[in-house]
Structures are given as structure tokens and as C-alpha cells.
Design a protein around this nucleic acid. Structure first.
Lengths: 146, 146
DNA sequence: GCTTGAGCTCAAGGTGACTTGAGCTGGTGA
DNA sequence: TCACCAGCTCAAGTCACCTTGAGCTCAAGC
């Protein structure tokens, strides 16, 4: 497929596809006129990238994850199955984290957050506050992942 | 409290506290030596900011959310209760989204993603792919409010 | 009274994830 | 043949979210 087709079908811009390739998330071969040609499997890679971003992974981590896929040949069912399986714990972890947050909020509704020391929101159980500055939830997704 | 205390206790850097104030997430009064002084309730605001970031909100949205809190007085139980309540649907939505993704991944493990057309990961049900380029999961978290 | 260190302001720098623009090329239909 | 459009490269710009640095002030401890 040409880069234009890929972009349209994956719902991203053409420069984004090039950018992803530059970042090592995708690879292509060139045709006679030096244009990029992608295998159809690039669409699944892009779907995976989009999904991974939704969970909060950085492109670098996504690239690392995708590096598990075969270089030369088109990924097989087994390749994707493995990737999906490796990946599920991260999603589960994110869900668990958010459920904790939701429960904390429920707790806040009950307690009105009058007690600084006891409030779950104020004193989250995950120790995020001690991990230094920054967009913590993203960072966390990235470490153990984001 | 002084800015240094606030930073340490909230687990962010001093410049970050100033930055947040500049962005309207926090407010302070100055003492004789022009130094910022914060009420204790700033800690809860910062906890809220951290939590909101974990759900994917931008600082601007968080500021908007926090704008619901009283200007002059220390927020009461009722103020925080209202905020928590307004906020829960967003967390729930994020959870639902991730659960959908998790189920899609489970589907992929089963199907091995052999069918491009039927694969849930490849053809997510939420229409995110048509929303244009970008960090979609974040954008989504920001749009409808989730 | 002098140093030390927390704070202040303002400007610039950095990162991640892209987008935009300029200038060039190559294949295709009229 | 010619126009045109898709692509190409490389450089720069953008946006959010901070961090770093320079140069200055103030107040508290020795």
C-alpha cells in the first residue's frame, strides 16, 4: 500500500505515518520512484499504536512492544496473540488504577474530604505522590508502563 | 504554608507549583517579603490535579473544574462532594473505554487477528479512528467530558 | 552584620507528538 | 508534452507541560 492509503485507512495523517516510521514503529520498502510501500499488516500495527496510546504508552514503549513482531515476514496469528496477551496486564492495571480512583472519589463524596489524613484522594494508595513531579499517571503507565 | 512545604507535601517541584498558579489552578497571598503563602486546602487541590491528570484531563480543564470551588473561603465538605460527584462520570467513562479495549484484546487473543475486517482491535466500536490524528485517547478524555 | 538559603521574576530550554512549509521528483491521464 | 498530484526530504513550528538558569531580594541564624 502507498502512504496515502495507509494514512486514510488508519485514520492518521501522512506525515504522522512518516513520523511513526522514523520513530521505528513502522517499516516500509521503497518502490522504483522512492515511494514508501507498506504491507497490509501495517494497518494492524497502526491500530495497535492507537490502542496503546489510549492506554497511555509513549511511542517509544509502543515501538519496544512492536519490536516483538517479526522483521521480515508478515506477523502471524501467533505473533499477534502473544502481543495481545503480553499487553493485557497493562490494560488491566490501568483499569484497576482507575477503579481505585473511582472508589476514592466515592469515598470523598461520603466523607466530604473533611479529614485530610484519612481522605483516599488526598492519600492515594498507589504511592504516586512520591514518584516526583510530572504527569504522573502518564509516567506510571510508562514505567511499569505509563 | 510556604511554597517549599507545599511542593514537598504535594510531591511536585516548586516551579511546578508556581506554574500551576500561573495557569490558574492555585491561588496564594503574599507575605511581607513577597513570598507566596498557601492555605492548607492547596494540598487537596494539588491532589485533585494529580488525580485529574491520571484520568487524562488537561490543566485547562482541571482549572475549569476547580473554578467551581469558592474563591475566598476554604472549600467545605459540600464543595468537594459536588466536585467529586461531577467528576465520577469521567472516571467511569475512562474505565468503560479501557474495559472495551481489554475485551477487544481478549477477542484478539481468540481470533489471532486474522480477519482484518472482523477484528475488534482493528475496528474499534467507538469511532475514535475517524476523529482525526493525535493522541486520541487523551483527546477523547477531554472532549465529551469523560 | 554577614552569610546562607528560600523565594521572586523573567526568559529560555526541553520533551513528546505531531504539523506545516519549502522546494524537488516521478508516474499518470488529457 | 504537459500539467498535476502524490510523494520525498529536511527544517522549522506548535502545543502542553514543565525544568533550568540568571540575577535579585529578603529574613533568619550564627
Amino acid at each position: 500500500m502507498g502512504i496515502g492509503d495507509v494514512a486514510v485507512r488508519a485514520g492518521v495523517s501522512v506525515p504522522t505515518v512518516r513520523y511513526y516510521e522514523e520513530r521505528g514503529l513502522l517499516s516500509s520498502v521503497r518502490d522504483g520512484g522512492n515511494r514508501r510501500r507498506y504491507p497490509r499488516s501495517v494497518l494492524r500495527r497502526l491500530a495497535f499504536v492507537a490502542a496503546a496510546q489510549r492506554v497511555g504508552l509513549s511511542l517509544e514503549e509502543i515501538a519496544a512492544s512492536l519490536a516483538g513482531l517479526p522483521e521480515g515476514r508478515t506477523p502471524t496469528r501467533a505473533d499477534w496473540t502473544r502481543l495481545s496477551r503480553d499487553w493485557r496486564p497493562r490494560v488491566e492495571a490501568r483499569i484497576a488504577e482507575l477503579e481505585r480512583l473511582r472508589d476514592d472519589l466515592n469515598g470523598c463524596i461520603g466523607c466530604g474530604c473533611l479529614s485530610l489524613r484519612r481522605c483516599a484522594l488526598y492519600n492515594p494508595g498507589d504511592g504516586a505522590r512520591s514518584e516526583g513531579p510530572g504527569a504522573r499517571w502518564v509516567r506510571e503507565a510508562r514505567r511499569p508502563v505509563p
